Simulated scan of single mutants.
Amino acid sequence: MDVSRTDCGGITGAGEYKFRDGHLIVTLYQIAIWAEHPEAIFTVVTSRFHNSMKLYVLGSWRLPDAAPGDHPPAPASAEGMSLH
């Protein structure tokens, strides 16, 4: 499943958010990507169950108008930033 920032409720910070039938984990790195590329789309992966609820994480990302196989650059605002 692919999601945009809007699909996730306009998340503005790293953390754990209610999402569908579980929780979505968002890192500072992913927030930096959305800050620089608001139109970025992430692949959502079901990670594990936590207290009988699904836990989702954001995986790879792409820009909507990118050609297949294109790798988007890391956001400049994420330099030296932890992935978690």
Rank of each mutant, 00 (worst) to 15 (best):
M1E: 13
M1W: 06
D2N: 15
D2Y: 08
V3M: 09
S4F: 01
R5F: 08
D7V: 04
G9R: 12
G9E: 09
I11W: 04
T12G: 07
G13K: 13
Y17K: 03
Y17A: 07
F19S: 10
F19A: 13
R20E: 14
D21N: 15
G22V: 02
I25F: 13
T27E: 05
T27N: 12
L28T: 11
I31L: 12
I31E: 12
A32C: 14
I33F: 10
W34V: 03
A35S: 10
E39Y: 00
A40F: 05
V44A: 02
V45A: 03
T46M: 04
T46N: 07
S47L: 05
R48T: 09
M53I: 00
K54W: 03
K54E: 02
K54N: 13
L55Y: 00
Y56H: 09
G59N: 14
W61L: 05
W61A: 07
R62S: 12
L63T: 13
P64R: 08
P64L: 05
D65G: 06
A67L: 01
P68I: 02
P68K: 01
G69M: 05
D70F: 01
A74F: 04
A74P: 07
P75M: 08
P75A: 08
A76Y: 02
S77P: 02
A78W: 08
E79T: 12
E79W: 10
G80P: 15
G80T: 15
M81V: 14
M81T: 07
M81R: 14
S82L: 11
S82P: 03
